[in-house]
Design a protein around this nucleic acid. Structure first.
Length: 156
DNA sequence: GCCAACGTTGGC
DNA sequence: GCCAACGTTGGC
């Protein structure tokens, strides 16, 4: 399958671009997704080598700040089995996991953050799920055209 | 299977 | 911190 493109969100309080840069091999596992639609994207469509934009929400400014790639595709999210974990999910079992995670590596920090404000005013980006009403997906697909446009904006 | 109540997300 | 939008839960 051709390379696909994604956008993932995190609150810097939980995981920031600085945390990402400090991670071993600039790689992290992406756990804690508890939305079925996002889960399906992860489980069924994400492939090693896919491109990922890293977006920071609930901060100032909210913006795409990094370019990453998938280095390991879906495997069971271990936090669902851990009673002590915030993301514990009692109905999931090792035999029948419900939630999945993946590993993602930071390739580069954008020269300039691409803010939500900029995305909203760019006609090429108006169809992104990110700017659609009430969107709450933390993992969403984007098109190659959107990927290219965001990278272009980040360079000037 | 409806739908009210509740919890969460996330921009502002 | 507020609150609108949305997903999930659970009583009936």
């Amino acid at each position: 399958m051709a390379k696909q493109y994604w956008l993932v969100k995190a609150e810097p309080e939980d995981f920031s671009i600085a945390d990402f840069e400090k991670s071993k091999n600039q790689t992290t596992y992406w756990s804690g997704v508890r939305n079925y639609q996002a889960r399906n994207f992860i489980r069924d469509e994400m492939k090693v080598g896919d491109g990922v934009l890293f977006y920071q929400s609930n901060t100032e400014p909210t913006a795409v700040v990094g370019i990453c790639k998938i280095v390991r595709s879906a495997y069971p999210d271990f936090t669902q089995f851990n009673r002590e974990d915030k993301h514990y999910f009692p109905s999931a079992t090792e035999e029948n996991p419900i939630w999945f995670m993946f590993d993602v590596q930071l390739e580069s920090k954008l020269k300039l953050p691409v803010t939500l404000a900029k995305i909203k005013t760019n006609s090429k980006l108006k169809n992104m799920r990110l700017v659609q009403r009430g969107n709450r997906l933390s993992v969403m697909p984007i098109t190659k055209a959107e990927w290219d446009e965001i990278i272009k904006i980040s360079e000037k």
